[in-house]
Design a protein around this nucleic acid. Structure first.
Lengths: 242, 242
DNA sequence: CGACCGTTTGAACTGCATCAACGGCTGTGG
DNA sequence: CCACAGCCGTTGATGCAGTTCAAACGGTCG
């Protein structure tokens, strides 16, 4: 199903009733295809639709003054592109499809409507935004002049876990449809150095990227090498609530 | 007034009725003093209160594996410390008072109550979170291996503007009660290099930090040098709404 | 089969880190 | 009122992780 990933993600975040689940599915009624390399939303525009990734991978990015690109988030199936535009009027960054993507576009009014009718769903959206913020903080912590291997390893750890969460990964591998250039844009390294770091991971039998797939040989070693602690993804957010 | 900064900030974000303003003021009824260098909230805890900075400066931070500290946000008067804890159960970072601070602590239930009674205020809080997220993204963009002068200059530009917004700055100067070490922790540079960068700004008659105050001699030069574009702070968020 | 895109490897360079020391200001206790 | 301690800012010398430039290799698609 197209909306599987979204429901999986919401289910992880909060317990939803059948009615709320229905409401979430209803959001995905209008779908468009965005081909690889094309912007889903562009900087400076004020989109009149909220976008949700249903299939494929996308990325949030800014173009820097020197023309290079900085990726600030990877968007997997189930992720919102721009709830921001419900309240902030202008995109301060762009979103590009890294693979061919199926994107649901939703009338912002519908979100407002949900906000008033199904509070639990609102809380789930709200929570999902806060998790996005936590991920951003973690990227900031990992990016700031810490070692290149740590930054890249951490990114792989996060993507692997997030892919698993929405059902995109098996025990020790998943599709990783991103180039080394894109890993470089996300970590702030050069593609050349990303290549060397990935080679080291391969040589140490930690993880291998081949033909668009990530194979993890030793997840513990990967987590150790990159200081990865999944707590920041707040996966058990609702388990611990009364 | 203690709550002036909070009201100024909310007023910038959204037009509020008198009743909503009253509700915001009511949030600040319980205040405690947190002395400089003491944690307001600590990582790993699940605070049962939401905290709002009323006076003084605070910072969000994580301790890295090597023992160093990474600051991920500066909190000025009017800023929320941890709305997160309304929905996410566990702090994945700490918050420390950089100066002696007056902090309002609010029962999370009160926030929920406001959410149902005064939707405009809820939207203002929501929007303020999204601005925080935008600031994080910008830090990520500026931090990722761009030049040290750009990173430091951008931080000063942002702090100056944010200080002005809540009434803490005059035309070309404001109190900047943070050490070079703290600028280093925020930019991912070493204190030594921060010092050299600040010297360069001073020598070029761009900006000077002296005795806990930032004097800006040439704001345009500062913005140019650091590629600062205030748009990401979404200051005119509500002006452009219908 | 050629063109293109992404990956891989090498060689030389550099911005920032690291280590180390000193100077100035502030507060504190004798 | 002075002496000392501690914190913060400043400056110099050296080294390295990652950049930059350049070139070759392999798969894939029209």
């Amino acid at each position: 199903m197209l909306h599987t990933a979204l429901l999986r993600k919401l289910a992880l975040i909060d317990r939803l009733t059948d009615a709320e689940t229905e409401a979430a599915i209803a959001l995905c009624s209008q779908v468009c295809l965005v081909p690889r390399k094309k912007d889903v939303v562009s900087e400076g525009t004020n989109p009149d639709r909220i976008h949700i990734v249903l299939s494929g991978w996308a990325a949030r990015y800014n173009i820097l003054r020197d023309g290079s690109r900085r990726i600030t988030a990877f968007l997997l199936p189930g992720d919102f592109c721009d709830i921001h535009s419900t309240v902030l009027h202008r995109m301060d960054h762009s979103i590009v499809a890294l693979t061919d993507c199926q994107i649901a576009f939703v009338d912002p009014g519908k979100i407002d409507e949900i906000a008033s009718r199904t509070p639990a769903l609102t809380r789930a959206f709200w929570r999902s935004t806060l998790v996005d913020e936590a991920i951003l903080r973690r990227w900031l912590v990992k990016g700031g002049r810490s070692e290149a291997l740590e930054a890249a390893g951490h990114l792989l750890s996060e993507l692997y876990l997030r892919a698993r969460l929405v059902g995109l990964a098996t025990d020790n591998m998943h599709e990783l449809p991103i180039t080394q250039q894109e890993i470089a844009d996300a970590t702030g390294l050069t593609p050349v150095h990303v290549n060397r770091v990935l080679r080291k991971l391969r040589e140490n039998d930690v993880a291998t990227i081949k033909q668009g797939a990530l194979m993890i040989h030793d997840i513990d070693a990967l987590h150790r090498a990159s200081g990865f602690d999944p707590n920041y993804l707040h996966l058990n957010a609702f388990d611990s609530r009364a």
